[in-house]
Design a protein around this nucleic acid. Sequence first.
RNA 1: GCGAGAGUGGCGGAACUGGCAGACGCACUGGACUUAGGAUCCAGCUCUGGCGACGGAAUGGGAGUUCAAGUCUCCCCUCUCGCACCA
Length: 862
Amino acid sequence: MDEKYDPKAIEARWQATWESANLFTVKEDPDRKKYYLLEMFPYPSGKIHMGHVRNYTIGDVVARYKNMKGHNVLHPMGWDAFGMPAENAAIANKTHPARWTYDNIEAMKRQLKQMGFSYDWDREIATCKPEYYRWEQWLFLKMYERGMAYRKESYVNWCETCQTVLANEQVEAGMCWRCGKPVQQKKLWQWFFRITDYAEDLLIHCDQLPGWPEKVVAMQKNWIGQSMGAEIQFPIENSSESITVFTTRQDTVFGATFMCLAPEHPLVQKLSRDMPQEAEVDAFVTRISMQDRSARGLEHYEKEGVFTGAYCINPLSGRRMPVYTANFALMGYGTGAVMSVPAHDQRDFDFARKYGLDIIVVVQPENSELNPSEMTVAYPGDGCMINSGKFDGLKSADALAAIADYLEQHRIGRRTISYRLRDWGISRQRYWGAPIPMIHCPTCGIVPVPESDLPIRLPEDVNLLEGGQSPLPVLDYFAHTTCPVCKNTNARRETDTMDTFVESSWYFERYCSPKWDKGMFDPAAVDYWMPVDQYIGGVEHAILHLLYSRYYTRVLHDLGLVHFKEPFTRLLTQGMVCKESIQCPEHGFLFPEEASEGSPRQCLKCGQEIIVGRVEKMSKSKKNVVDPNILLERYGADTTRLFCLFASPPEKSLEWSEQGVDGAFRFLSRIWRLCWIWHPHISDASPWNGNLDDLEGDLRQLVKKIHHTISRVSSDIEDRFHFNTAISAVMELSNLMYGISPEPISPLKQSVFRLAIETVTLLLSPIVPHMCEEIWSALGYSRSITRTSWPVYNPDALTRDELLIVLQVNGKLRSRLVVDVDTSEETIQQMALKDEKILKFIESRPIRKVIVVKNKLVNIVV
RNA sequence: GCGAGAGUGGCGGAACUGGCAGACGCACUGGACUUAGGAUCCAGCUCUGGCGACGGAAUGGGAGUUCAAGUCUCCCCUCUCGCACCA
């Protein structure tokens, strides 16, 4: 053993050893308890960032720990390899998305290996490979057969310049993020998955995910957004048609004085046709559709609308209601039509005041009387029904049911449940994604690709178009095909590709049998490994990815492919990695090296004093990122891992600290030196395994501390994932060990320290595996420490020899008492009452009560 | 607006079922060893009064329950995150 801790000399060597021994390769073993630990797989951007490092370090500790506890641990890694950045990078660098992606995968894989993560690399998958996405296409066909996948026309964010659909997050302040031109709403035919069929099931099972953070469960519930209410038909005047609205307040129907339709509502154009208002309505609809979705959600968004010229009839009050189209009515919720009750809904109230529409109060609050002409805000609360015909006098809460019954009896409406959740639009007018296996035939219409033709390979020999639009529609040999049914040679392939969230909705099942070529996965392997016991990833995926995965698993379940509905038993969402940002008043965000040292710090470009920003999530735009490579280079993988775990518990955000990393390195050096100091004394000893009663003094205390530490570290890792407290427990143990000198040495001391050193090494090995392997082998073991059992503690050793009893007077700490462990409560009480300090504080006042808590305290009430 | 979470020393954070508030680390201060140290080891380190012994106050603020509250209950304040014209 060298005196100095030198991670460079150690880490690469152990990584190579683990790899050549296939240490982390696993297979199904019915005799062992399985544990499936999964971290969210990364998008291969080319470089790992601190977020990955933190995520994967947390996972690796748990995987290694479970391994040592005897579990058969599946711990795979792969690549979420389709997606738009590859296309953009390919255009920018004049390369190909596939080439760019595979190069990035190689680079990132090298970095992950440098971190010493215990992945079974034999199971690596990349979702852009035909072997993977062919099964996704296969499932698409199955879903299409059962109506779970369908095509419909719907509105999307569309950039005319770039000729492509944009995701909501790619629209910045109403403009295309790439070209800066305004984004419009465009109606397009798109493929959808019928996730709304599972809205209720997904919602119900939210309460059956005890291993998930409440926050994530709440977010999912929120997203699904169930509301109980009713659908009501409002007949259109002089027409056989009617408008169907959804409302949660059917008790207020009698107060509905006008109707609002979403601008995209199909009836809007129809009703205004040939009316004097037609031109105005068209102009309004066009203007609103030019606005992007996020602008319509802004807080100060002014409510406005246009009268369509048509009227509908309130089926309960008989009132003639003007039909408007209004910007605050959303096509994406309910039926896209709102019965407006201005007295009891703030939006309707604002709208009515703006356009001079009638306001009728139908719910009177208990202690006041509402007068429509004097109201300044709507009254959304409960109260007593008025102006509502035969429902007058009811409490509004009871009217909710009474009116629902009435609607159903008279067939003008029905109780219904509405969800905020929409069907999942999976079409992307993008190149770098999995092709949707469908064919458009001029005679047969939509025809699925025969199963035997799968996979529909994404052609890789293409030149990307400068504007960013997909080359597939103009790639004749791909797009032009023959109809499998009627053999029409003028059929066209679907050239849209699938949303990349489809790939990430089943990759965890694919890991169970990554090379299986008879289906999506080997059912036996999935039976053995799934569901995932512990899933770990960023909270930014709390809704979309996790909800899609839960949905997709239900699809697999209903197709008889798996036997479970929920894919992830336990979920841990780790916090963000943060660092302070710095800004120059003139040059904006600066990298740390662009500012002077010391204080005040100055911009090196212009000399102005810099503004230290708040601690926030690391991001390239804020220039506050730390490249893990630099840490690996300077401190090594073990220090990097230790820092990530020690600085804060995993669910909280992690603040970057240069000194914190130094501290982590110093602790490892301390452990190393401790081992180096004791190595000559203990290399021939065997770990102490005697009777605790034979020990006394320092060594007895040390052995007790060892067992105590095992207990703490085990429960911190196992129950709570609180690695920071686990590490501090080992620090306490090592501090105690530093307090005992090897001189004078004795066989007993050698043996006890052998136990101490071994225990420290074992306890730290999931956290800093390279260093611990090195120490372990220096102790003479040839078998990898990861193949060694986790230490067990002796519960008897946890009991203390002496107890510290806290003495209180009136609940305030006044004195302490050290007693033997088996001292009776009576004795302790007597000792307390004789304690000098206590007597001083009692001051001869009468004692009202004495509370003795066993092994803890005495409280004297006077 | 709705939902969730969090507020503890100079800082990151401990405190498990109510029972010594501040574990462990960082920073800082002092000392030891040193040619030197930004290496290492030891010690101190919530604020406050006091030379000291020894006190007082303190877990965002306010009330309450209790022998005892960072922890439980109620009200308020601040911050973070998610959703948001959801009918």
